[in-house]
């Protein structure tokens, strides 16, 4: 398994632990990731507010680079995944637009052909038969007793025609992975909802309200921790958790994990090795469960 890794911006910045744990998880599983160092930011759905054309062009450039490398692209961020798929669909369905995009790319020496490489989220490659077998094979420390609530991140689910999950309203990809890692998946309604990150600056009450509701739902459903496939969801649920607690006058203290952290824990890495001590919300209460 060899892929071009599209890291996304936040994994190298405010959630560096994501990049680190992805590297560890890949190591442990024997997956080769080639970091796409010249790929630009996906735009996160924000660049396209200002300049839809450039946003698409930059993503097409990313695809072109992957085509040149003859490698499928793997994302570790739900937002990157959703935005890239949207661009792919838009360009592929409109030959005239594709021409326009390629015209912009030309001078840089890239051309997007289309249909040659796939764009998948890390969770999607783990969910393939090969991925699941790898997990089964390499789990060293089954996460027995850990009740994990998945939080998918809306960009990776909707619109459903762009999602790689079979049923966006009732996805099971992450929960299936949790089970193989030995953890107990917790199902709850909010797992497919939005964390509110895109509006955390524009309307923080609304944003924190949304994140707060998801946390409460997870807690009331019995979760020890929330595991997410999107670093923006992580920022919303983890870094802003004190704000949410203050707003609702409650204490949650729910640890929020990145998916690759959960995988790497099961592969035998320690929380420190995965920089779980960098999280705003302490993950210490998981230590007991991890020690078995």
């Amino acid at each position: 398994m060899k892929f071009a890794l599209f890291t996304g911006c936040v994994a190298k910045g405010a959630t560096r632990e994501l990049m680190l744990s992805t590297t560890r998880a890949a190591e442990g599983l024997g997956i080769e990731f080639v970091e796409m160092k010249s790929a630009a930011c996906c735009g996160a759905g924000v660049l396209s507010e200002k300049t839809p054309l450039v946003a698409d062009a930059l993503n097409a450039r990313t695809f072109a680079i992957a085509e040149e490398q003859e490698l499928d692209v793997v994302t570790i961020c739900s937002t990157c995944q959703g935005v890239l798929k949207k661009t792919e669909c838009h360009i592929d369905s409109d030959p005239g637009y594709k021409k326009k995009i390629n015209h912009l790319l030309e001078e840089g020496g890239h051309q997007y052909t289309g249909g040659k490489i796939k764009v998948k989220h890390f969770a999607n490659i783990l969910s393939t038969e090969e991925g699941l077998n790898l997990l089964r094979e390499k789990v060293k420390r089954p996460l027995a007793g850990l009740k994990a609530a998945a939080f998918y991140g809306c960009y990776v689910l909707r619109p459903s025609e762009l999602s790689l999950y079979e049923d966006s309203d009732n996805p099971t990809g992450l929960e299936q992975i949790f089970e193989i890692l030995g953890a107990t998946p917790v199902y709850y309604d909010s797992r497919t909802k939005c964390c509110g990150f895109p509006i955390v600056m524009m309307n923080k009450e609304t944003s924190h309200d949304m994140a707060g509701n998801a946390l409460i739902d997870a807690i009331e459903s019995g979760a020890d921790c929330v595991v997410t496939g999107c670093p923006l969801c992580h920022l919303s649920l983890d870094s802003y958790q004190p704000e949410i607690e203050k707003m609702n006058k409650k204490g949650y203290s729910v640890p929020i994990l990145h998916l690759p952290q959960l995988v790497a824990l099961a592969l035998g890495y320690s929380p420190q090795e995965l920089e779980m001590d960098k999280h705003i919300v302490s993950t210490a209460r998981l230590d007991k469960i991890l020690e078995g």
Binding site: R158, P159, C194, P198, I199, N203, T206
Partner: peptide
């Protein structure tokens, strides 16, 4: 203004 376009959280439930 508040309550308008910039309060949309991009969840795409509406599209779905």
């Amino acid at each position: 203004k508040p309550g308008g376009i910039w309060d949309c959280t991009h969840c795409a439930e509406c599209v779905e």
